[in-house]
Amino acid sequence: MRISEGEEEITAYLSGDIDHHSARDMRESIDAIVQMKKPSLLRLDFSGVKFMDSSGIGLIMGRYRLMALYGGIVRVVNVPDELERMMNLSGLSSLDIIERRGVKLETAK
């Protein structure tokens, strides 16, 4: 996982498999930098994710809550088609924080 920082925003490029085991490290890395920088926007970029079980949903919900503490928001971007069913099942779509792959996004500086 790679994390890039801008002035007000942080983008975490998640990659590989997200399961209960790997989510722990991802969570710790993201939270460490979020707590230090307190950005107004945290982007979770899923373009490199090959597999995800419901631990990925836990990861998003947890970061959503953390960002809310600082008055910031989370955007989930570049979600591969294969993960869409999991995203829909989770009810996260009602939070309107998910953007599908193909949607043009400005990249973090």
């Binding site: 989510a23 079980d53 631990s55």
Partner: peptide, 9 residues
């Protein structure tokens, strides 16, 4: 951070 979705999935 378990989402409580295991069985639903």
């Amino acid at each position: 951070e378990r989402a409580g979705l295991g069985f639903a999935v």
